[in-house]
């Protein structure tokens, strides 16, 4: 089967505008979730950060008539509901058009696993042989719409979030744009596997048995040696239910002793951008030989053992796994393997 590589990345986040900047902020424990909007202008802040991330990721990469485009977002331009055409398809068309892409844009809106789902779509497009490369962009901006929704679900933490901690009280919302360019041309990182599974249990609560997340882990473990896993970058929203569920899934998959981290304490939960942003930061961490600390974590507060730490640790292995879960019962896992060309 065709190997698929990441050949370019781009980030627009409140804590840094390159992978190394965001990595450095995470190592120093600096966190920031929201942009200062003053730096931007125009009709759509959402589209602007998505375009900026896509431009950075495609620097030096040729956009051809066979370049694909996949946008990952949950709510796109929802802050303009009632005032403009906020359809995700129209937004994706403008973003793709601005960077010169002529193929039909595809939007993946699969709740909080959108980032992995969009990357998986991109991987499949490369493997289909019909695309030269695929630009995958994840973007999310904070709006009153999203904030009020998570607030009425009582999912928001009144303090900085604390993934896997015994005193965790919920999530913090963040905003960011992150992009990866995928290609069959060899690059520094290979996406060697990816999967989506449903809990078939509840639309807004995770499975008590971690069913879908466990099935995702079981699926990707078929193709790798456990000893090669440097770390697992889990979803770790810091809601009581999510982190508990992930501890069960990891335990069932026999991964309780593998180093785990959650990055939501560094830049919040960036929803549709999370999968791509957290993957890019994890690649940078691995390349620096480290497992990033889990900011906000102090004392384990889940039922099953999880190898999570408030301190930076050395990364040993050949790959990392990105794990996500979301509303609608969806779960996703993706394997990033250090590839040939450096």
């Amino acid at each position: 089967m065709t190997k698929v590589y990441c050949i370019g990345n781009g980030l627009v986040t409140p804590v840094g505008s390159t992978a190394l900047e965001v990595l450095q902020a995470a190592r120093e424990g600096r966190s920031r979730r929201l942009f200062e909007r003053g730096a931007f202008y125009g009709a759509s802040f959402f589209e602007e950060i998505a375009i900026e991330a896509a431009k950075k990721a495609t620097e030096g990469i040729e956009i051809t008539p066979h370049t694909g485009f996949v946008l990952s977002t949950t709510k796109g331009d929802i802050e303009h509901i009632g005032k403009a055409d906020i359809s995700l398809a129209a937004g994706a068309g403008r973003i793709a058009g601005t960077i010169g892409i002529t193929t039909s844009p595809i939007v993946v809106s699969n709740a909080c696993i959108s980032g992995i789902a969009a990357l998986l779509q991109g991987v499949r497009m490369i493997r289909s042989g019909e695309y030269d490369n695929v630009v995958v962009v994840g973007a999310e901006v904070c709006s009153e719409f999203i904030h009020s929704g998570f607030d009425c679900l009582k999912a928001l933490s009144p303090e900085p979030c604390r993934p896997f901690d015994k005193d965790r009280r919920g999530l913090n919302l963040g905003e960011a744009a992150a992009a990866l360019v995928l290609s069959a041309r060899e690059g520094p990182w290979e996406i060697s596997d990816g999967v989506i599974r449903n809990d078939a249990n509840h639309i807004s609560g995770p499975s008590r048995t971690g069913e879908g997340s466990y099935k995702c882990l079981r699926y990707v473990l078929e193709g790798i040696n456990k000893e090669d896993i440097a770390f697992i970058s889990v979803h770790g929203t810091a809601t009581p239910y999510n982190d508990e569920m992930e501890s069960i899934a990891l335990y069932r998959a026999g991964l309780s002793d593998v180093p785990v981290n959650a990055l939501k304490g560094n830049f919040g939960h960036t929803l549709g951008a999370a999968g791509i942003l957290e993957s890019i930061v994890s690649m940078a961490a691995f390349d620096s030989g480290i497992v990033l600390p889990t900011k906000g974590f102090h004392e384990l507060g889940v039922s099953y053992p999880v190898n999570v730490s408030a301190k930076e640790r050395p990364a040993k292995g050949k790959l990392f796994i990105k794990l996500l879960s979301g509303f609608g019962g969806v779960n996703g896992a993706m394997v990033f393997r250090k590839g040939g060309a450096l």
Binding site: K75, P105, V107, N110, A111, G149, I196, N198, A200, I203
Partner: peptide, 27 residues
């Protein structure tokens, strides 16, 4: 219900489909 993939989740819950579920938006 403010996510396009919830419908796929509802179908999965009803039928115990534990496989892949996805939502795509096209022009």
């Amino acid at each position: 219900y403010t996510l396009p993939n919830i419908v796929a989740g509802e179908i999965s819950i009803r039928n115990k489909y534990e496989g892949e579920t996805s939502a795509y938006v096209l022009d």
